[in-house]
Amino acid sequence: MSSRLISARGLVRAIGLSALAGGAFLATSGVAQGPALAMLDRLEPGLWEVRARDEADTVQVCVDNGRKLIQVRHRGEACRRFVIEDAPTMVTVQYTCPAGGYGHTRVRFENPRLAQLETQGIDKGLPFNFIAEARRLGPCPR
């Protein structure tokens, strides 16, 4: 009976090692695909205006890279991100912030100075959901 137990343990160990090796292969094979969210790198740095379609409010954001447009409602927070879609003209990201907020944002590339945003989530305990246009205005003020 103990030999069967040892054999079963050996089998479990072999399965675990093969799964670990497979996971390592998948992790390294993704590196050759290019940088994640590369579409956002095509957006020009500078001062961007985010204008919600249903609201008169606008937000101006100094963008050094397009990734800042993912977290318009959680600017400056170090949130954990999970990439859902990473295509040449569209990215979708789900993120969770340590302060309890979260969001789901889709950014669609129009040209290096124009993008469309759809974002929803929770900020400061309240839900948000809006569609906006993000347009580069010029250089960031110094």
Rank of each mutant, 00 (worst) to 15 (best):
G22I: 02
G103Y: 04
V59A: 14
D41L: 09
G101L: 05
S18I: 14
T28C: 02
W48M: 03
T58Q: 10
V107S: 08
V83W: 10
H104M: 05
A19W: 06
G23A: 05
L69Y: 08
A21S: 09
V31I: 15
M39S: 05
L37D: 13
T96E: 10
N111G: 06
G34P: 10
F109E: 11
R51L: 15
T58W: 03
E44Q: 12
V93Y: 11
G76A: 14
R51A: 15
I6H: 07
A78V: 06
V12T: 09
V72W: 13
L26Y: 01
T119D: 11
P35Y: 08
A87F: 00
E77N: 09
F25Y: 07
C79E: 07
K68W: 15
I15N: 00
G101C: 02
R106P: 15
G22D: 09
G103K: 09
Q33R: 11
V61D: 12
D41M: 01
R81I: 11
L26Q: 06
A56L: 09
F82R: 15
L26I: 03
V83R: 03
A8C: 07
R113V: 13
G101I: 01
T58N: 08
G100P: 12
A99Y: 02
V12W: 10
M90F: 05
D64C: 04
A21D: 00
K68H: 14
G34Y: 04
V63R: 02
N111K: 06
R81A: 15
L40A: 03
P45K: 00
R9Y: 02
P45L: 03
Y102M: 06
R4Y: 03
L47I: 10
L37K: 09
H104V: 04
E55V: 07
L117I: 08
Q33W: 01
T89D: 15
A99P: 00
T28D: 01
D57S: 12
A99M: 02
T119I: 06
Q94C: 00
I15H: 00
H104A: 06
E55P: 01
G76I: 12
G66W: 13
R51M: 09
L17R: 10
P45H: 04
R81E: 14
R108P: 02
P45N: 02
L40R: 03
L5W: 10
A14P: 02
M39N: 01
T105R: 09
C62I: 08
V63W: 05
T96F: 08
C79M: 08
R106A: 13
T28H: 06
L114S: 07
R4C: 13
G103D: 04
G16P: 04
Q33A: 15
L114G: 01
N111I: 05
N65T: 14
R51S: 15
Q33I: 03
V31M: 09
E118N: 14
L69A: 11
P45V: 02
L37I: 06
A24M: 13
R80T: 13
A8H: 08
R51K: 14
T96A: 10
A52I: 00
V93F: 07
C62W: 07
T105S: 10
I70Y: 04
P88R: 01
R53H: 12
V93P: 02
A115F: 04
E85N: 14
L117V: 00
R51Q: 15
C79S: 08
L17M: 00
G103S: 01
E77Q: 15
G101V: 11
R42C: 07
R108L: 03
A8W: 02
G34W: 00
G10T: 07
R108N: 14
F109H: 04
